[in-house]
C-alpha cells in the first residue's frame, strides 16, 4: 500500500465512489487516512457528499472550499499541499474526470514524484460509451497522463451498469481489462463490485459500499 493513492479516469467512471471506499478500507486497516476531493469539474456528484460517513469512520476530508456554495470558483484548498508534503498520513486523492479534471493535479505532482511512494490508479468502466474498448480506454488514459504530468501505475476495473449490474456483467469485462493491462503494460490492481451483489469471479474483487446519491 503506497502512501498516496490517486484515482483518475474518464468522468462518470466511478472515481469518487472508489476513493471514498478506498479511504474507508485504509481506516479499517488501522491507517491514518485523509481524502481530498479535487474534482473541480463536476458540481453535481462528488466524494465530499460522503463527508459525514467518512469523518465518522475517522477519515479526514479535504473538500473544495467553495463547493456547493454561492461562489462559483473552482479553487483547490491549500490543505492539499499539506497532505502531499507532510507525509504523516495515508492520502487518497479523488481527481476530476478526463484530462480537464487531471490538469488540476499538475501543481502537486512534483511533491508526489519526489516522495515516490504513490500509486496512480486509472479507473475504467467499459460500459461507458467513450471507454467501451481497450483502445479507447487507453486513449483517455494517455490524455489524462499528459494533462496531469504523471503516469498511471495501475488499472482498476469498475465496469458496471448502475443499479442494473449483475455479477456476469462485471465478469464479461475481464477480457477487456486484461487487454488494457497488456496494451498499457500496467497491472490490473483490482476489480470493483457493488457489495450488495454476490461476489463476481474476477481478478482482485473489491467490494464497494455505494455512496448515497442526492436524488
Amino acid at each position: 500500500m503506497k502512501r498516496v493513492t490517486l484515482f483518475v479516469g474518464h468522468y462518470g467512471s466511478g472515481k469518487s465512489n472508489l476513493a471514498v471506499n478506498y479511504a474507508l478500507m485504509l481506516r479499517s486497516c488501522g491507517k491514518p487516512a485523509a481524502l481530498a476531493d479535487m474534482d473541480i469539474v463536476n458540481p453535481y456528484f462528488r466524494s465530499a457528499d460522503s463527508a459525514r460517513e467518512l469523518e465518522d469512520a475517522g477519515v479526514r476530508v479535504i473538500a473544495l472550499p467553495f463547493a456547493n456554495t454561492n461562489v462559483d470558483l473552482p479553487a483547490l484548498p491549500s490543505a492539499i499541499y499539506g497532505l502531499v508534503e507532510s507525509r504523516s498520513e495515508y492520502a487518497v486523492l479523488d481527481v476530476g474526470g478526463d484530462d480537464r479534471g487531471a490538469l488540476a493535479l499538475g501543481r502537486f505532482v512534483p511533491y508526489i514524484l519526489e516522495e515516490n511512494d504513490y500509486e496512480v490508479l486509472y479507473v475504467v468502466n467499459f460500459y461507458r460509451p467513450l471507454t467501451g474498448n481497450a483502445n479507447d480506454a487507453l486513449e483517455v488514459m494517455r490524455e489524462i497522463e499528459t494533462a496531469a504530468g504523471i503516469r498511471c501505475t495501475g488499472i482498476v476495473n469498475d465496469s458496471n451498469l448502475g443499479g442494473e449490474t449483475a455479477p456476469s456483467d462485471i465478469e464479461a469485462t475481464v477480457p477487456l481489462a486484461r487487454e488494457l493491462a497488456a496494451l498499457s503494460g500496467l497491472p490490473l490492481v483490482f476489480t470493483a463490485y457493488d457489495a450488495r451483489l454476490p461476489r463476481p469471479d474476477v481478478p482482485g474483487p473489491f467490494p464497494l459500499t455505494l455512496q448515497r446519491r442526492p436524488v
Partner: peptide, 15 residues
C-alpha cells in the same frame, strides 16, 4: 457484454 451502456443524461442526448 450486452447492448446497454452506462451514460449520463447529457451524453445520451449527444449519442
Amino acid at each position: 457484454m450486452g447492448n446497454k451502456v452506462l451514460m449520463k443524461g447529457n451524453e445520451a442526448i449527444a449519442e
